[in-house]
Design a protein around this nucleic acid. Structure first.
Lengths: 169, 169
DNA sequence: CCATCAGAGTCCACAAAAAGGACTCAGGAC
DNA sequence: GTCCTGAGTCCTTTTTGTGGACTCTGATGG
């Protein structure tokens, strides 16, 4: 973001930063791996457990947290002549994590993969390879070099006003 | 990715998945926060420490890991008439994390923010707001609904061949 | 009606990692 | 020589994770 100016502190406080807030919900090794499996389609307790070889206590805690955050849902399901069981499908909020996760996958593809990519995206219509990139308002890709960050120094105040609009919002 | 087929296991093993490999390097709460500060421009040990209020032992360990991964660099710097000290700038590999991190920020903006965004991106040329999105090969934005995932079942084998090309690569 | 099975957990003992604070070490400046 | 600052290390306490056994529930089957 900066090239030679010495930055001593992040310009956005941890409490106001939507990135660090995201990390509070999903920024934990097991949570990230659970979400990876979930985005691949896994939904059931024992399937997560076997897929990731995660301790059952940890899985139980993480799933509860993800449900509380609204990223997953806890729901009963019933297979043919089976009794009712529980599954953990992603909500819209959870499915929206596909974009950052694919951006991260792309990063891994580039820097960690020997050039082999087990998972790629393609267009249903044209079959073209799809990637994640910066785009402008017309939906045209923009190179990283042409981008600058904008910090809104009043974000904290405006957030406070939004939360209790009685006091002047 | 799937809508009603029951998926029992991830189609890509943890060892082959470039997403889970990425998480091995950066998928830890403190590591993610250190990288956030680094992308904001922070570089020095005590600055990271104060910015994040991170225990010094943890910071020390994490920075060593990030240097070993090639995400950060450990380098001496010298200010005007000061003695030489150490800084931790991001490498190209580290700076490339801006894309997944901005994708994650966008997710936080949408789901966690009350609509307030302290950090946004804009085009240096046109001033337009920049966002992160799926794009096709011509650099045109594509909606999520038009995308499908493609799994390469031979990725594991091809990766092995790439790593020791003497045996037939 | 009793035993069995599978999914979805909980409980407990042990190990690893994080938190917090004091301490060290190096090299200029005073 | 003494002070100061940046960049760590060391040590103790607390928290979290790990791994395995155990529980609970409701269908199935003999």
């Amino acid at each position: 973001m900066k090239d030679d100016t010495p930055v001593r502190r992040s310009p956005v406080s941890l409490a106001d930063c939507n990135l660090s807030r995201s990390f509070e919900l999903v920024g934990d090794r097991w949570t990230l791996l659970i979400l990876r499996s979930a985005l691949y389609g896994v939904r059931r307790f024992d399937d997560f457990q076997a897929d990731l070889d995660i301790p059952r206590t940890v899985l139980s805690n993480r799933l509860a947290g993800l449900v509380e955050s609204g990223i997953m849902e806890k729901r009963a399901y019933r297979e043919e002549g089976q009794r009712s069981r529980v599954e953990y499908p992603l909500t819209d909020m959870g499915r929206a994590l596909m974009l950052p996760f694919m951006a991260m996958t792309q990063w891994g593809d580039k820097f960690l993969s020997d050039g082999v990519m087990p998972l790629t995206l393609r267009s249903r219509k044209t079959g073209e390879r799809i990637s994640v990139a910066y785009t402008d308002e017309q939906g045209r890709a923009v190179s990283f070099a042409d981008i600058e960050a904008v910090i809104d120094p009043d974000a904290r105040k405006r957030a406070a006003r939004k939360r209790k609009p009685a006091k002047g919002g």
